[in-house]
Amino acid sequence: MKEPIKNYKVWIGFLIIFILLNPWYFPSGGEPVLIFGVPLWALVIILMSIVLSLYITYVIHFHWDTDEDEDIREEE
């Protein structure tokens, strides 16, 4: 059975997304960069949250065997 927990590439993807999700890399102090009145760091967090959701969906869909997959194979 294929499990994503044993695939190191999946974990590397999660690590990269979680690093980018936390905007520690933005400079502290000074004037914040605003885009349509929203700070850039907030837009980065929103964008990376969407990327995380899509990545989780991808991992579940393509890297995880579920009982439904086995039921479909048995019917064929």
Results as ranks from 00 to 15, higher is better:
1 M>W: 13
2 K>I: 13
2 K>N: 14
3 E>L: 10
3 E>M: 07
5 I>P: 01
5 I>G: 08
5 I>M: 12
6 K>D: 09
6 K>N: 07
6 K>R: 11
7 N>P: 00
7 N>H: 05
10 V>A: 15
12 I>R: 12
13 G>F: 12
14 F>M: 11
14 F>E: 05
15 L>A: 15
16 I>E: 04
16 I>A: 12
17 I>P: 06
17 I>D: 01
18 F>E: 05
19 I>N: 06
20 L>P: 08
20 L>A: 15
21 L>M: 14
21 L>P: 00
21 L>R: 10
22 N>R: 15
22 N>E: 13
25 Y>L: 08
25 Y>E: 13
25 Y>K: 08
26 F>C: 11
26 F>N: 03
27 P>E: 14
27 P>A: 12
27 P>V: 11
28 S>G: 06
28 S>H: 09
29 G>R: 08
30 G>S: 04
31 E>G: 11
32 P>D: 12
32 P>A: 09
33 V>H: 07
33 V>P: 02
34 L>C: 06
35 I>P: 03
36 F>T: 07
36 F>H: 07
36 F>C: 05
36 F>P: 00
36 F>Q: 09
36 F>D: 10
37 G>M: 15
37 G>I: 10
37 G>N: 10
37 G>C: 13
38 V>I: 15
39 P>Q: 14
40 L>K: 10
40 L>A: 15
40 L>E: 08
40 L>I: 07
41 W>R: 14
41 W>N: 12
41 W>L: 08
42 A>S: 14
44 V>I: 14
45 I>P: 02
46 I>G: 04
47 L>H: 03
47 L>Y: 08
48 M>K: 09
49 S>D: 02
49 S>W: 03
49 S>C: 08
50 I>R: 01
51 V>W: 03
51 V>Y: 02
52 L>A: 10
54 L>Y: 02
55 Y>S: 01
55 Y>H: 01
56 I>Y: 00
56 I>G: 04
57 T>Y: 00
57 T>N: 00
57 T>R: 02
58 Y>K: 01
58 Y>Q: 00
59 V>W: 03
59 V>G: 01
60 I>H: 01
61 H>G: 00
63 H>F: 04
63 H>V: 00
63 H>K: 07
65 D>S: 03
65 D>C: 01
65 D>K: 08
65 D>Y: 02
65 D>H: 04
67 D>Q: 02
67 D>K: 05
69 D>A: 04
69 D>V: 03
70 E>G: 01
71 D>T: 00
71 D>W: 06
71 D>N: 05
72 I>V: 11
73 R>Q: 10
73 R>M: 12
74 E>C: 04
74 E>V: 13
76 E>H: 06
76 E>S: 08
